[in-house]
C-alpha cells in the first residue's frame, strides 16, 4: 500500500459556508504528514470526517486501503483538538476502559503510560492533571494497541514549551519505532517543520500545496544578501530583472529568487565590474512557504 490515506474530491459545507472544496490529497504510508492551515481552513473538519464524526457532502476517502468501518477504527488512533477524557477516573482506570473497548491486552497500558511519561501519576484522578498531562494521556490513549495510522489534531494544544517539545519528539520517533503513519494538523508552522516529512497546506478548504517538506522548501523562493563595494551603483543593473533593496552602502538584498538563480546574478555583477565580497542565500522557512502559498491562493 503506497498511501495510508487517500482522499478524492471531498466536499463539506455547514449551511452556506463551504469548508472543504473538492479536496484531493494522499498521505504516503510511513510519513509524518503535517497538515497546515489557518484557523477555519478546514483541518479539523477533515479530521472529523476521517474519523466518522461528521459525514462529507460528497467525495470519497479511504484509510489503510479501506473505507471507514468499525474494523478500520480499531487500526486508527486519534487525538482531536482538546483531550477527551473521563476526568472523574484515574489515568489507569480510563485506559482500562479503552483497552476493553479496543479489545487489546491490558499490558498495553503500562507501555503507553511509559511512552508519555505518565507512569508516576497513573493513579491520580485525571481532573487533578495539568493541561499538558491530560494531553499526554490522550496521546497515550491514541497510541494504545500500536495503531497503523494516527490522526492528531493540534496535539500540542495547551502544552508548555517543554511539553510541546516532548510530544514533538515522540511524534517524530513514532514512524521509526512502529511503522505508523501520522497525519498531524497544526497551525504552528514551526512545530510541523520540526516533525513532518511531508506537508499539505490547506486554504479555504482547498489544498494549495503538497509534497515532501524538503522539496517544498528548496523549490521555494528565498532572499539573497550581497556585500559589495558601492552597492547603490549596482542597484539599477539588478532592478532590471529582480526585486532589489539597498540595505546599506555596501549591502543589497535580492528577494523572490530561487537558489538556482544565484550564480547568474553573481555572474551579472562580476561581469559588470562589481567587487563582490560576500553572498548569502536564505532559503524559505516553512512559515514563508505557507504565507506564499496562502497569498498565492488568495490572488
Amino acid at each position: 500500500m503506497d498511501n495510508a490515506i487517500e482522499i478524492q474530491q471531498l466536499n463539506k459545507s455547514f449551511g452556506r459556508q463551504s469548508v472543504l472544496r473538492q479536496l484531493t490529497m494522499a498521505v504516503p504510508s510511513g510519513a509524518v504528514y503535517g497538515f497546515l492551515g489557518n484557523n477555519g481552513a478546514g483541518k479539523s473538519t477533515l479530521m472529523r470526517i476521517l474519523l466518522g464524526l461528521i459525514r462529507p457532502d460528497s467525495g470519497q476517502f479511504s484509510m489503510l486501503g479501506q473505507p471507514l468501518s468499525r474494523a478500520l477504527k480499531a487500526r486508527v488512533g486519534s487525538l482531536i483538538d482538546s483531550a477527551c477524557l473521563y476526568e472523574h477516573l484515574t489515568a489507569v482506570e480510563f485506559l482500562r476502559l479503552m483497552v476493553k473497548l479496543k479489545d487489546i491486552p491490558s499490558l498495553e497500558i503500562s507501555r503507553v503510560l511509559e511512552l508519555v511519561d505518565l507512569q508516576p501519576d497513573q493513579h491520580k484522578l485525571i481532573r487533578n492533571y495539568s493541561l499538558g498531562m491530560k494531553q499526554r494521556l490522550a496521546l497515550a490513549n491514541a497510541l494504545l494497541g500500536e495503531p497503523e495510522l494516527l490522526l492528531l489534531d493540534e496535539p500540542t494544544n495547551g502544552l508548555d514549551p517543554t511539553g510541546m517539545d516532548e510530544i514533538r519528539q515522540l511524534i517524530a520517533r513514532l514512524p521509526r519505532q512502529s511503522a505508523v503513519t501520522v497525519l498531524v494538523s497544526s497551525h504552528l508552522l514551526d512545530e510541523v517543520e520540526k516533525i513532518a516529512s511531508h506537508v499539505g497546506i490547506l486554504h479555504n478548504g482547498q489544498l494549495v500545496r503538497e509534497g515532501k517538506i524538503n522539496d517544498l522548501l528548496s523549490a521555494g523562493q528565498g532572499l539573497l544578501q550581497l556585500n559589495l563595494a558601492d552597492a547603490a551603483k549596482w542597484l539599477p543593473l539588478l532592478r532590471m530583472s529582480n526585486q532589489v533593496r539597498l540595505v546599506s552602502a555596501s549591502e543589497l538584498e535580492v528577494s523572490g529568487i530561487r537558489k538556482i538563480d544565484c550564480p547568474a546574478i553573481h555572474y551579472q555583477l562580476i561581469n559588470a565590474g562589481a567587487h563582490l565580497f560576500q553572498s548569502h542565500f536564505d532559503s524559505l522557512s516553512l512559515e514563508q512557504c505557507f504565507r506564499q502559498s496562502v497569498t498565492g491562493a488568495r490572488k
Binding site: G52, K73, V76, I80, S82, C84, L85, K102, D103
Partner: peptide, 18 residues
C-alpha cells in the same frame, strides 16, 4: 453529562463500537 462534559461522545465515536 459524563459524555457531554468530557467530549466523551467524540471519544466513543472514534472507537470501534456501534
Amino acid at each position: 453529562s459524563l459524555e457531554h462534559k468530557n467530549h466523551g461522545w467524540r471519544l466513543m465515536a472514534t472507537l470501534p463500537i456501534s
